[in-house]
Nucleic acid binder design. Structure first.
Lengths: 147, 147
DNA sequence: CTGTATCCACTGCGATACTG
DNA sequence: CAGTATCGCAGTGGATACAG
C-alpha cells in the first residue's frame, strides 16, 4: 500500500507520530539522529556559513566527496558515515554520484527533499551551539541541587 | 535571550558542532533523540493541534502529568520516559513539580528554553508526517533498483 | 579513493519487580 | 501515581582488515 500517493486521493491519513504504530514514528526516529543531522548540515553548506565568515551569503547546498564529509565530521567512523549516507540516499534525501575516474570518485548532494529537511536541522545545530552555555549552567545547578 | 553567557570574555565562542571535541556536539546528540522530540512535542501542546481538530489556535505549552505523557507517547517504556524527562529537567528545558497530594502528583512543563527548542522539534515532527509518503516512495524505488 | 565485512565492547531500551 | 532497581538481549557504533 502506500506508494504513489501521487494522486493523493488518499487524503492525508492524518499521520500522528505520537502513535507507536504510525510509520511517521519511524521516520522521525531516523531523522532524529546525530549523524543524520550533521551530514545534512555538511551537505547543506553550513560549514562555510560561520558567523565570522561571509555569512551573509550562505553557501547553500553543495556536492561533497565522501572523504570531504569524513574530514568535516571529525570523529565519525567509516561504518556510520556510509550507513548514514546509504539510508539518506534510500530515503531520497540525497543523491550519490559515482564518477569512474582512476581512483573512483563519489560525490553526494542533497535533493530538494533533503534540502527542505536541512532547513530544519540547520536550526537545530544552531540552537545547540547558541544555547549550550545556558544548558550547561542549568546542569551544574541541577547537579549541585541534587547532590 | 539571555545568552548571558555573560561577561565571559569568550564572547561568541564559535562553537562548531562539526568538531568532535566541541561540547555542542553532545547537546546536538541529546536533542537528536526520538523521545526527546516527542516529549517536547507533547508538552508543547502539539497533540491537540491537529489539522481537523477544533483549534485554529494552537494550544501552546501546557503542563502534563507523568501518566498523561506516558499515555500520549504510546509505546514508550517507563524507563525511557523517566530518563528522558530527567535529562530534560537537568538541562533546564522543563520543570518538574511535585504536589504532595494523597497519591503524589507530578507535573511537567516546558521552560522558556524548552519552548524555544520545541519550536524546532515541532517542525521536525510535522516534516516527518508530511513527507512520509514521498520518502516511502523513494525507498521502494531504491529497493527495486538495487535488487 | 570508497567502500564492504568482521569482530566486539558498550549501552539503549524493554520487561519485570519493588517502594513511597 | 510516580517512580527506582535489576536483568538481559539486541542493536549501535568503533576498530581493523580486506577489495573494487
Amino acid at each position: 500500500m502506500t506508494t504513489k500517493a501521487g494522486g493523493k486521493a488518499r487524503t492525508k491519513a492524518e499521520y500522528d507520530a505520537f502513535l507507536a504504530a504510525c510509520p511517521s514514528r519511524q521516520l522521525l526516529d531516523r531523522i532524529s539522529n546525530k549523524w543524520v543531522v550533521l551530514v545534512l548540515c555538511a551537505l547543506g553548506g553550513d560549514a562555510s556559513a560561520r558567523p565570522g565568515a561571509s555569512d551573509g551569503a550562505r553557501a547553500g547546498a553543495r556536492a561533497m566527496r565522501y572523504s570531504e564529509i569524513s574530514r568535516l565530521l571529525a570523529g565519525v567512523s567509516q561504518k556510520m558515515l556510509t550507513q548514514t549516507l546509504r539510508s539518506l540516499e534510500r530515503d531520497g534525501l540525497l543523491t550519490r554520484t559515482v564518477t569512474p575516474t582512476v581512483p573512483v570518485t563519489v560525490s553526494y548532494e542533497l535533493t530538494g527533499l533533503g534540502l527542505s529537511l536541512h532547513e530544519l536541522t540547520r536550526h537545530l545545530r544552531y540552537w545547540a551551539q547558541s544555547h549550550m552555555d545556558e544548558v550547561f549552567a542549568h546542569r551544574e545547578e541541577y547537579d549541585v541541587r541534587t547532590s
